[in-house]
Computed example of a mutant assay.
Amino acid sequence: MLRLLTWTIACILMTMPVGPLSAAALVEVTELLAHPDHYDHQVVTVSGRVTSFQLATNRDGQPAFGFLLQDTAGTVKVVGLGKADVREGDYVVVEGVFSRLRQAGRAIVYNEIKATSVQSMTKMNPDLVG
């Protein structure tokens, strides 16, 4: 089922007009986790289900968000500025810059995508998502 969904998303991305998402190749979360050095500081496009969605405000008072993006084999953290028009449990396509690790004060954050675009699959083409 996930492979069919991944293939469907790839087809959508290839046929979409130029807009918020680019035609970057769709990468599975498993691939990011297996080869984090290869994707470090690279723009990636991934898909999965939103879990642990949180709204926040950054130090400058701008709205921000964070969530875990989960597919059948792994989970990656997604953060971004602005408002994400998604909800807990939504299936989404995320484009952003992947970091295998970053320093956040005294903590180290692993496997994170700083999102430039988050789009719900149901809003892309409701007929393709059940």
Results as ranks from 00 to 15, higher is better:
T6V: 13
H38F: 12
A115I: 11
G61D: 05
G66V: 04
L4D: 12
H35S: 13
P17M: 09
A56K: 14
S22L: 13
F67I: 07
K123G: 09
V29Y: 03
D85T: 09
I12H: 07
V78E: 06
I12E: 13
K77H: 11
M14E: 15
Q62G: 02
E88F: 03
G19S: 14
H35W: 02
A34P: 01
A34M: 04
Q103F: 00
E95A: 02
H35E: 15
D60F: 11
A24N: 15
D85K: 12
K114V: 13
P20S: 12
P17T: 13
V44R: 02
H35L: 10
M121W: 08
E88S: 04
A84F: 07
V118P: 06
P63W: 03
P63N: 01
M16A: 14
T72W: 07
D37C: 10
Y39I: 09
A104H: 06
V18E: 14
F67Q: 02
R59C: 06
L26M: 11
V79H: 15
P36L: 04
K77W: 10
Y39A: 00
L4R: 14
T116F: 10
Q54T: 05
V79K: 15
T57N: 09
L33W: 03
G19C: 09
V27D: 04
Y39T: 04
R87C: 11
A56W: 03
F65N: 05
D40S: 11
L101R: 12
H38E: 14
G61M: 08
V76K: 00
G74D: 03
R49Y: 08
E31R: 08
L13Q: 07
V50M: 00
D37Y: 09
P63I: 05
A107P: 02
M14Y: 06
C11E: 14
A64I: 04
Q70C: 05
A73G: 14
L101K: 12
H41M: 06
R102M: 08
T75Y: 01
G74M: 01
A34R: 08
G96A: 01
E95K: 02
R49C: 06
D71T: 07
V93A: 10
Q103L: 07
G89I: 04
M121E: 02
R100I: 01
S117G: 09
Q103E: 07
V86D: 06
P20C: 12
F67L: 10
L13V: 11
A56Q: 11
V94N: 06
V93F: 05
V43H: 05
A104N: 10
D71G: 08
G48H: 02
T57Y: 12
G61Y: 03
G105T: 04
T8P: 00
K123H: 15
G105I: 04
E88Y: 00
T8R: 03
H41E: 13
S47D: 01
S99W: 01
K77R: 15
R100A: 06
S120V: 04
A107G: 07
D85F: 12
M121G: 00
E28V: 02
S99P: 00
I108W: 09
T116C: 11
Q62M: 11
T72F: 07
V93G: 07
C11Y: 11
N58P: 07
N58A: 09
V76Y: 05
E88W: 02
L13Y: 01
S117I: 04
T116P: 00
T6I: 08
V109Q: 14
A23K: 15
